[in-house]
Each structure stands twice: as C-alpha cells, then as structure tokens.
Simulated assay, not measured.
Amino acid sequence: MDDLIYNQRFWPDRGNVMRAEDAVIENISMDNRTGFVTISYRDTNDYCMNEQVVVLAVDRDTVIRDAFGNPMSFRDLRQGMTVDAEFSAMMTRSMPPQSRAYRITVVNRMEETHVTEGMVLDVDLNNRFLYTGNPNDIYSQIRFVITDSTVIRDRRGRQIRLRDLRIGDFVRVIHATFMTMSIPPQTTAFEVQVL
C-alpha cells in the first residue's frame, strides 16, 4: 500500500482527521485483512466545488455504523451507498490517494440511479473510462468510470469485458446521479447493456 502507515491503534489528534460528507462508495476491494473503499465526494472551498476521490484503508479498528448508530461490518458496505467518512490527513501520493479510515457512517444504503442511452465514442482501457454521446456535440457527452463492480452485458445479456465494447455500439448505462462539473461530466457506471 505505497508508503501509507495505517496500523496505528489509536486515533490521532482531531486536527489530523479529514471529513467527507455525502460521499459515494465507488468501489470496494479486499487485500489480505485490509479492505479498501474508494469514495468520491464534493470538496467545496471559497472559489469552486471540486470532486475528490480517495481510497480508504479499512481495518479492524475502523468504526462502521449506519445512520442510527448501529454497528455494521465491512461486508455490509456496497457500491453506490452514500457515506460520511473520517480518515487520516496523511495520504499516499498515489492517484487516487490512499488514507486510513477511522469512521464510516452509512447515510443512505443505495444511491439513486439514472439511465442514459447513447453511442460509444471511445473506450479508454488504461483509465477504465467509457465515453458516450454525440461526437459532434461535446455537451451531450458523458465519461463513465468503469469499476470492478460494473456489470457489462452484450445484446444477449451475457457478461462481457470493457475491451469487448466497440466504438459505434449503442448502449444503455445505469449510473450514479452525481456527476462532476467537468466537460464532459463524469460519473460511475453500475451497469452497461449493449442494445
């Protein structure tokens, strides 16, 4: 895990804790005894609103609770959930950065979804992006983040890989309602169906 130090058995002083409110779980994975939860959230400062992405290292000392304070386990977390998170201000220099999670509170069990249909304009295998929309209108285009949890299906409903999608395919994408303010806007794809 790069140079991340996350095996402390105590909470550092409160000045070293970062908070993310209404963050969306983008991806969940496990490596040995450490779980990793990728979240995206809006960081608002005086000048603009930026989307931040961070990978939270979740271990046995991480407190996970629902909105009513009931304890939850790492296995209860799902992609698309809305959470509040408290994590260490010490992060790796990787992209996205990684940090130790102290507390995760599930605010909403599942985020609402939207459905978008469009033509595949590009498939970026290196960054795991799928671009759809009208090639002559940048304002109609959307960049979808394809995670390990994204399900991609062909016309017959069989599961396929991102590399199997072709420019010109017409697809239906079930995705998060939250989009970045970039051009084109970016959001997470939960399911991609070739039509």
Rank of each mutant, 00 (worst) to 15 (best):
L162A: 06
N134Q: 03
M91E: 04
M90Q: 14
D164T: 02
M110C: 02
R163N: 11
G157V: 03
Y139K: 10
R103N: 15
I160D: 08
T177S: 06
L130H: 07
V123E: 02
E86Y: 12
T147A: 13
I146H: 05
T150M: 01
Y131F: 15
N126L: 15
R100N: 10
V173P: 02
A85R: 03
N134G: 08
A89L: 13
R161T: 13
R161N: 15
R156T: 12
V115A: 05
D169T: 08
S149F: 03
E117S: 12
T92A: 05
D122G: 08
R172V: 01
F170R: 15
R100T: 10
M90T: 15
Y131G: 04
T116K: 15
R172P: 00
P97F: 08
R93W: 06
A85L: 03
T132V: 03
V83A: 09
L121R: 00
L121G: 01
Q159M: 00
M81N: 04
R100Y: 04
D137A: 12
R100Q: 09
Q141K: 08
I104D: 00
L125Q: 14
D169G: 11
V115Q: 12
G80M: 02
R156E: 07
P96K: 05
T177A: 09
A101G: 11
R78P: 05
V173W: 01
R78H: 09
V106F: 08
Y139C: 12
D164R: 08
N126Q: 14
T105V: 15
E117A: 07
V106A: 13
F170T: 14
V173G: 01
M110Q: 06
P96L: 10
R158Q: 13
E117L: 04
F178I: 00
V115I: 10
V171G: 03
S149R: 10
M110P: 01
M90N: 14
D122V: 06
I152Y: 07
N127Y: 12
A85Y: 02
R103C: 15
Y102G: 11
N127H: 14
V106G: 08
M110F: 01
L121F: 01
M110I: 03
M81E: 00
P135C: 09
S149M: 06
T105Q: 13
S99E: 01
M179L: 11
V145K: 12
V106N: 08
N108P: 08
S140Q: 07
Q159W: 00
T147Y: 02
T177E: 09
E86C: 14
F129V: 00
I174P: 09
Y131N: 06
E112W: 14
N127T: 08
R153E: 12
I167P: 01
T116W: 12
M179E: 02
I152A: 05
E112I: 11
T105F: 04
L125M: 15
A89Y: 11
I152L: 07
R109V: 04
D148F: 11
N134F: 06
F178K: 11
